[in-house]
Design a protein around this nucleic acid. Structure first.
Lengths: 135, 135
DNA sequence: CTAATTGCAAAAATTTTGCAGGACT
DNA sequence: AGTCCTGCAAAATTTTTGCAATTAG
């Protein structure tokens, strides 16, 4: 999610409404992998009339245009990630925090996938984070 | 999900009702990573009175006891996997199929996680499967 | 001005829960 | 017999949808 993305949206004929700009602003640089509800709650003070439809609609557009990614990490709800470059995640089983893992390591693509066209892979680490380890 | 698991369930004071046995039987060796609804639909002919509550309750028990795993691969619904040994997955973006990847490869644990207690990792490959590649 | 977007409300989809009756050990 | 489990129905959660009113470009 970059600043230049704003002009990209415009070019595509999409309108930069205040609500959209607020959602984009909220997501920009956000490392908390928020859900739709978290985004809604964070913005409803500034936009008391905003509806979930707008949040979901905007998220859908941003995902479609590749400006954010939808995560399937939390099986109870969708989460969204403004960092679209290849990266991985660590989930703390104590506090539930999801941490970005930037290392661009390689994974051996196993023999069983030799006939498949493997385009990407994502690694999810689990364990206990530094803060929770102390307790 | 193994045969010996049945006696394990009994030992834990859990009852082997016909519905539970049917769900266990349906899951055993099943490589389709079914959702609760798929399990329900597959069994409702044999158990016309069976309710979702029973399916969800049984799945919860099986997950709790470690006999199956809940997957967070599909962001629209929970899926369940009777294979509890460490393994990974490939998702075909054309047909949506989820394929088990058995290779016990190692992943480099990145420096940024040095203060974390990393206990496990799962890899999700994406791409196009052999069948879909032909088309 | 016009097409895109919002907000509302209803609905769909998935999962959870309370409880009375029924079944397993 | 006693505890666990089932089925039902209602509710909670998350997400989607239709549509009239509004707004950005």
């Amino acid at each position: 999610m970059q600043n230049k993305d704003l002009s990209l949206l415009k070019e595509l004929g999409l309108k930069l409404t205040p609500q959209r700009l607020a959602i984009i602003e909220y997501l920009k640089g956000n490392k908390n992998h928020p859900s739709a509800e978290e985004i809604y709650n964070a913005l409803k003070d500034r936009f008391p009339s905003m509806s979930f439809a707008t949040v979901y609609n905007t998220l859908e557009v941003l995902v479609e245009k590749g400006l954010i990614k939808e995560l399937s990490i939390d099986s109870s709800k969708k989460r969204f990630d403004p960092f679209t470059h290849p990266h991985h995640h660590f989930i703390c089983k104590a506090c539930g925090k999801i941490v970005d893992v930037e290392a661009p390591f390689e994974v051996f693509v196993p023999e069983s996938l030799r006939d498949f066209q493997v385009e990407d892979f994502k690694v999810v680490f689990t364990g206990v984070c530094h803060e929770c380890k102390k307790e």
